[in-house]
Design a protein around this nucleic acid. Structure first.
Lengths: 336, 336
DNA sequence: TTGTATGCGTTATCAG
DNA sequence: CTGATAACGCATACAA
């Protein structure tokens, strides 16, 4: 076992005081170039690393960020979280932060966990997702001045905290435009029920406004269903049964789209065109056209915003929260 | 902002010494029942939480475990990691540990990260996955006496470190038995190339031995391909082209199985039966029979083994490493 | 059983 | 620019 290498070890080795080493690390501008290089060389030579625990004790900051990881509700969504997680870890890493995971069954439990994590580990910030109007979690955190970002808009008042989101309406708009360009004129939409939240509205809106902009009437061409394959199939059957049925469908999720695809047993050129949302592995697997969210970028921006908020804290004043809305990208495959 | 609640605050509130509070927390048996309850009540009342940073400084233990999260190579595998991750987080939580994430491009980078994490955060242990024969990571960790478990066997000498794994051969055996029971006699196997590692061998073995046990000859009925949909389709076409072709296929992954499925355009009773492996969302989505790994249990056992190793460290002697091999479960759907 | 003293590695303050 | 000193919150040996 190698001896523990502390800041004193380095100081001795570089023949300076302990404090100078600390300065080299934390306030390089205070130290003469020559000295700094010597110290840095010693740091390298000894393989010294600052003890986060000791630093944290002194500064009250842990350089730790936290993210909730849910039980897998809808398996099909797994990969979204997956890619997001990787992006977060990587971005946090380059900024000198680490990501910690926690679980919670519901919002109340999550808030209790905030308290725990803050008390025990002095976490520097949180990344939240699946936010909704009047989210109790964001209110709790804001009230205590805990830094956080959300992946998802606070639909009520979009400006009050930092967030990053993907423009769902722009996504369904792209999908709809693509179908229009392919010659479709009767384009339906399968989404989630009206009262299912703002994301549902958002995605439907992009489709509806695009049809309108082309002088087409979306009335009667959309149906809302809970998310799921069977639900998608059912919804598609309903839409195909109306007079002058749609020749193409835009869907709010890959699950719905997958179901829709199986509702049509025609093959060849006359086949129903279907576009999904999220570009999950399922879509990739079966060659389904889908709207892809730029998750790595979302993650990167989340970290940026959070770090920015963190680094400015010493000023005393909280900076103006920033918001970033990212466009998704249509991945065209064979289904539409 | 509420005042910082330290062990002294609690001591005052409970009218005992600071030390007594510490004892209540760390060595309850040293404290009289009555006193202990009073202290615990104060802890509750004040919402006190021990500072991990301070504790860590004293004890050298962080109550932090680390896991690598890769870039998504094969999207279809995403959900496996996902469920595993959730299981780990949850199990670690109940044991009083937290999970930290890190990324690394390759084994060398991962080892550098070990060093970093150990030096800066004094991590208590690591959970590794995708281990292989002669894994440099496990050797490095073992050499430094760093506690770790792996999800996956060290195929060379199975007994030298704690691990949890899923019995792949048992999985393909179940799949093959299921097909035999359904009346199939010509059952093929699509796996990975011979030199693709031990997992590939393992999964193929289960299939082959089951056919043998039924007096059937597996010769010429299997093909190895890199993982992928297109590869699966190609492999299936090859197998269907031989004289007396298979009527059913067991596959080493859902990707391969998905491809295999699309290689057969027959419908109805005569259709090629296909069974996948991993029970990914894709399988669930399209109703494909697949072998499911008990990921939550794997995660739980990993944490158990790790904690066990951690808690015994004070003894001085390293306990005998334990190994756990878990059986997978066949999820029967419509494809086979 | 309880209290007292000390140190873990770092950073902030302040004097040189 | 550099060096001494205190303090962060907790746990441990030791004495009472």
């Amino acid at each position: 076992m190698a001896e523990k290498i502390t800041i004193s070890t380095v100081a001795e080795h570089a023949r300076v005081s302990r404090q100078t080493v600390s300065n080299v690390l934390n306030s390089p501008h205070l130290v003469r170039e020559e000295t700094r290089e010597r110290v840095l060389a010693s740091v390298q030579a000894l393989g010294y690393r600052v003890s986060q625990a000791a630093r944290q004790m002194r500064t009250g900051r842990s350089r730790l960020l936290a993210l909730r990881i849910d039980a897998v509700r809808d398996g099909i969504h797994g990969s979204v979280l997956d890619r997001f997680l990787h992006g977060l870890t990587e971005s946090a890493d380059v900024a000198g932060y680490r990501l910690m995971l926690y679980t919670a069954a519901d919002a109340a439990a999550e808030i209790a966990t905030f308290d725990d994590l803050l008390g025990a580990y002095e976490l520097d910030g949180f990344v939240l997702d699946s936010t909704h109007r009047g989210d109790a979690r964001t209110a709790w955190l804001a009230e205590r001045d805990v830094p956080f970002v959300t992946f998802g808009r606070p639909w009520g008042e979009p400006g009050w905290h930092p967030w990053v989101d993907v423009d769902g309406a722009a996504g369904t708009e792209q999908a709809t435009r693509h179908l229009l360009a392919a010659g479709h004129r009767r384009i339906g939409f399968i989404g989630w029920p009206e009262d299912d939240g703002e994301v549902a509205d958002d995605r439907r809106t992009g489709w509806a406004r695009t049809l309108h902009a082309s002088g087409l009437d979306p009335t009667g061409l959309h149906v809302g269903m809970p998310d799921g394959i069977a639900e998608g199939e059912h919804a598609a059957r309903d839409l195909l049964a109306i007079p002058d049925p749609p020749t193409a469908l835009v869907c709010a999720s890959d699950s719905l789209a997958l179901g829709a695809l199986s509702a049509d047993d025609r093959t060849g050129p006359g086949r129903l065109a279907v576009i999904g949302f999220d570009d999950t592995p399922v879509a990739q697997a079966i060659g389904m056209t889908s709207v892809s969210q730029p998750l790595a970028e979302v993650a990167g921006r989340c970290i940026d915003l959070l770090i920015h908020r963190l680094d400015r804290t010493p000023d005393g004043k909280v900076p103006q929260p920033e918001q970033i809305l990212l466009p998704p990208r249509l991945v065209v495959r064979s289904s539409g």
